[in-house]
Design a protein around this nucleic acid. Sequence first.
DNA 1: ATTAATACTAAGCAATCGCTTAGTTATTTT
DNA 2: AAAATAACTAAGCGATTGCTTAGTATTAAT
Lengths: 188, 188
Amino acid sequence: MARKKEYIEEEVIEKAMELFWRNGYESTSVRMLEKEMGINQFSIYSSFGNKKGVFLRSIDCYKRKAKLELIDKLKNSSDGVKSIKQYFYDFINFSKDSRLNKGCLITNTVNELGEKADQEIMSEIVNFATNVKTLFIEKLELDNLKTAEIINKQANYLMVSLQGLSVASKMFNQGELDDFIENTFENL
Amino acid sequence: MARKKEYIEEEVIEKAMELFWRNGYESTSVRMLEKEMGINQFSIYSSFGNKKGVFLRSIDCYKRKAKLELIDKLKNSSDGVKSIKQYFYDFINFSKDSRLNKGCLITNTVNELGEKADQEIMSEIVNFATNVKTLFIEKLELDNLKTAEIINKQANYLMVSLQGLSVASKMFNQGELDDFIENTFENL
DNA sequence: ATTAATACTAAGCAATCGCTTAGTTATTTT
DNA sequence: AAAATAACTAAGCGATTGCTTAGTATTAAT
C-alpha cells in the first residue's frame, strides 16, 4: 500500500561489492557507495541498515558470484588434484582487474581487518574458508592412496597457498604466478 | 641556537611503525599516531612532513628491524634451502602479535593499497621484495645442481609462498601454518 | 477522493579526518 | 641581558566520515 522501490537490492549490492572488492572496507565511503550504487544514502540505510550491512550483503553477493564462476566448476570436476590446480588458475582470471588483480574479497578483508574484524563479518569469512577447504579435501580424497592425515595437511597447505596467490596477484606478474602454481602442485 | 627536541625521531617512529603494522595505513589516524608516539601533531608534522612521511620512515624502520631480526640470519647462513625454510618459521615469530599474527608490514601495505598505492610507497615495497628474492636466489644457488631457470622459478614460488604465509598467519593456527611450510619445502 | 504507508530528495547532524597556525617556552648566540 | 631561533601547547581550519531527519512524491487500500 505504498510507493515502490526504484532499484533492485541485488543489483545495487553487486555494484557495492565491486567497490569493496577494489577498495577494501574502510576505504570505501558511504558517498562512494551512493554514487556507485546509484541510489541515495537514505535508500542505502533503509535497505541495508548501515555500512556494515551493505558489506555483509556484499560478501553474500561475492560468495554467490564465486560459486557460479569458480566453485561449482571445481565441485563438478572429478580430476582430483588437477582440478584444484585449475581452480587456482581460474581464480586469477576471476579476480582480474586491470593490469593487476584485486585478489579475493574474503582474503582482502582478513588482511585488512585482521582479528579486530567484527564478529558477524568474521563468521562469514570463516564460513567461506571452511567451504573451500572442505571442497579441497573432497577432491584430494579422489586419490585413494592418501591417508586422512595427509589429506588434511595438504588441504591446509592449499588454503594458505591460495591466500598467497590472492595477495601476490596484486603485485606479481602472470609468469611469476605461474611459477608459483606449478611449484605448488609439484608434489601433491 | 634554539630549543632542543624532547624526543628522538627514531624512537617515536618505531612506535608509529608498530601502529601501522597492526592497523594498516588508512586505519591509522594522526590522532592515534599522536598518542602512540607520545608527541604533539605539530612535532609529527615538523619532523616528518605529513602522514605519508611518517609511514615512509616507518617502512624504513621496519626494514631495519627485519634485517636485524630476520634477514641477517638468513644472509649469514650457508644451509641453502634449509635456511630459507628456517626463515619462514622465523618470520612467524617475528610477526607474532597476540594469539594471531600481524603479518608483514610490506605485504599488508600491498594488500591494502594495491596498485593505487603512492609512487614513493610502492618503490619502497618493490625494493624490499627485490632484496628478499635476491637473497632467496643466493641461497638456492648453494645447491649447484640447479639451473638458473629453475632457481628463478623457485624463487618466485618462495616469494608468493611467503606472502601467503603473511596473510594466512592472521587467520590460521600454528599447526596449519606448519603444514604449509613443510609442504612448501617438500620438493625444493 | 481520502487516507495511510512507503520511497524518494536534500539538507544537515556530530565526530573525525589530515593538517595549520597563533601564542608560549626553552635554548643558544651575540 | 637582549635578540634570534626553534620546539612546544592547544585551538581550530575546511573537508569528509557514517548516519539522520524534515519535507515531498508516489503508491495502494479504503
